[in-house]
Design a binder for these strands. Sequence first.
DNA 1: AATGTGCCAGACACCGGTGTCAGAAAGAGC
DNA 2: GCTCTTTCTGACACCGGTGTCTGGCACATT
Lengths: 358, 358
Amino acid sequence: MQAKGKSNLVSKSAACKSANPTINDVAALAGVSKKTVSRVINRSPLLSDATRDKVETAIRKIGFVPNPQARALALRRNFLIVLLHDNPNAQTVLNFQTGVLQTIRDSDLALVVRPVDRDSADMLADVRTFLEKQRPLGVLLLPPISERGDLADLCRNAGVEYVRIGSAMLDDEAHCVASNDREVVSEACQALIERGHRRIGFVRGPSGFRSAQEREDGFRDTMAQAGIALNEEWIAQGNYRFSSGLVAGEQILKAAPRPTAILASNDEMAAGVMHAAKHLGIDVPSKLSIVGFDDSPTASHLWPPLSTVRWPIVEMGRVAARKLVARYLPDFDEGAGPLPTRLASTFIDRASMGSPSD
Amino acid sequence: MQAKGKSNLVSKSAACKSANPTINDVAALAGVSKKTVSRVINRSPLLSDATRDKVETAIRKIGFVPNPQARALALRRNFLIVLLHDNPNAQTVLNFQTGVLQTIRDSDLALVVRPVDRDSADMLADVRTFLEKQRPLGVLLLPPISERGDLADLCRNAGVEYVRIGSAMLDDEAHCVASNDREVVSEACQALIERGHRRIGFVRGPSGFRSAQEREDGFRDTMAQAGIALNEEWIAQGNYRFSSGLVAGEQILKAAPRPTAILASNDEMAAGVMHAAKHLGIDVPSKLSIVGFDDSPTASHLWPPLSTVRWPIVEMGRVAARKLVARYLPDFDEGAGPLPTRLASTFIDRASMGSPSD
DNA sequence: AATGTGCCAGACACCGGTGTCAGAAAGAGC
DNA sequence: GCTCTTTCTGACACCGGTGTCTGGCACATT
C-alpha cells in the first residue's frame, strides 16, 4: 500500500519542522495525496476511518494548520466575519464584538470590524466593493444600519450571508437577532405608572429609525392601555445625542404643568434631560423621574444613577455569529442549543426613578 | 510588436464583463503578459511609459481590481492591519479605529480588530497563532497592552510590523505614537494651584501601568515644583474602574482635613469620586474640585461636567496607521506631511473645577 | 559589421490549498 | 472465477496573483 507509480507525494518533505508545515508535508508523512489531507481537513464523508486516523495523526504530529490565504483563493471565500456598524454607542459595538469573538474563539474565523458612513452617498458602493474584495463568509449588521433593506439586498446579491441585529424582527428568523424594545419600554412605563406617575413625558429618537419607533410605540401603547391621556407638549424629538436630549428636556420642562417623569429613548438623551433638570433646579428623582435606554456606562455614572434598559448585547453577538457560521459549518455548534431570534432586554431600576411628589 | 510565439496571453478573454475581471483579462486587452500587468499594479520602475499607459487604460476600462486573496498567497502577506487591544474604554478604541480607517480609506487595506485577554495565560500564544495565520501587514497596539515588551518582541519575531500607542515613548520613533500624559497632568495640576488649591488629592491608576505612572509623576513633580507638601492620606489607588474610584473617593474624603481638589487618573474613577462626594454631601465644585482624564463621553454627561484631558486619539490612529503602512508602501503618504511621534493632549476645563472655599 | 551593455517584457514555476474526474480496491451477484 | 457496483483515493488542473530567469531589442562601443 506504499505510494505507487508516479505520485505527487512531494519531495520537499525533508525535515521542515521550522517553517510552517504545508499540506504537502502532511501528505508525505501520512503517505497519502494532498487531496486526501484536504478531505480530512474538510471533514469529507467519503473517507475510510483508517485513512482519516492516519492523516489526523500526521497533522497533529507536525502541527499543521491550513493556510487561510490559500483556502480563500481556492474557495473564493475568506473565513472572515465582518461587523458593519454605523455609530451606535461605542460600548454596544465593543460588547457585541465580545460576543462574536466568544463564538469564533476556537475556529479559523477572524472578525473584521468595518464602520460605515450612513450619510455618505456612496455608502452602498463602498460596502459592495469591500465585500467583493474581502469575500467574507458573512456580515453582521448592527443598528441603525441593520434597518436598511438595501444593505441586506446588497449582501444577498453579493452572495454574502448576513444577520441583522435590531430592536425588532427586521427579517426572517435566520437573518436576524432582535430585542423586544417595545415590550421593555412598556415595562418601564408601567413601573412609572405603578409608582403613581400620570404626567409622563417622552423623548423620541430620530424619525426613520426602527428602534425609535418601537420605543415610542411601547410608550404610547402603554399609556393608552392605562387610560392616561398624552400631552404632546411633553413629547419632544431628539437625535440620540446628549445635546438633543438637553434641548428636548428644556422644552418639555418649561411646560405647565410639567411632567413628573420623562422616558428618553436612549441614555445620552436621558443625561441631557437630567442636565436640563439641574439647570432648572428640578431635583431628580424627587421632582422628576428619568428613565433612559441602553445601559451605557454613563447611566451608572450619573447622579442619581439612571434607570435604564439593558440589551443583552454580548449574548446577541454570540447568537448572531452562530447563526452566520451555522450556515457554512453545520457541525460548528455541536449541540450548543437552539438559536433564539428574540433576546429579551431587561429593565434596570436605579435611583433616577421615584414617586411623584405632588 | 504583437504577441509573438506561444504566449500565455490567455484564452478566457471572451467578453467577461460580468464576473470579476482578472489580471488575465487585462493582459489580453492590453496585449501584454500578465506579469507586465502585475508590474503596473506594483508600480515597478522597470516599465516603459508607453506600456504603463496601455495597461492602465485597460485596467480602467474593465474595472480590474487585484484579488487580495491571490496576492496574499503569493506574497505570503495579507493586506491587513490588526488592532490589538485589551479593554481600555470603548470610546477610545472606536475613535482610534476611526483614525486608522481615515488613513486606509482609499487603499487596499482592511482593518481587523482583535481584542485580547491580558489576564489569560496563553495570551501570547493566541496572538502568535493569530499573526501566523493572518499574516497581517502589521499590528497596532493600544494601551495598556502596548506597554508589554513581550508582545512587541513577538511581532518582531513573527515578522510583523507594529506600532505601539501609549502615554509616553514606549519604543523608538518608528514604532510608537505617544501622548504627553505627564505634561498635561502637570498642566491640570497647575490650573488647580493657580485657582488657589493647596490640599490636592490624587487617585492613582493600577500599578504596573505606564499610563498610571506617568500621570502620577506629573502630579508629584508639579506639586514638588510648587513647593506644596503631599499628604499621602489624600492619595489612593484605583484600577481605572468606576467602583474603585468610588472607594478611593470615600477614603480620601474622610480624611481631616480633606483635600479641596482631587485629580483622578481617568474619568471613570473621577466619576466614582464625584459619587463619593455626593454621598457625603460635599458639593462639587464649590467644596471639591475634581479633574479626570480621557474625556470619555461620561465626562460631559456628569453634573457638573467634568474637567478632564483629551487624548488626540483619532489623530493618533491616523498617524499610527501611516507609520505602519509607510514601511511597506513608501509612496503611500504622498507628502501627507511629517510623521510625529508625540501628539499633545489637551486639558479641558469644564465645570467640575472651582476655587477652594476655605 | 561585430560585439557589448542596459532596459523591458515574457515564459514558467510557484504560493498552498480545492474541484473534477478517472481509476483502483473491495464487496455483491451470477 | 468473472463482471458489476460501490467506495475510496490520486493525478492534474486551477484559483489569481508574484518571483526568477531568460531573451529580444535599441543603442553605444570598437
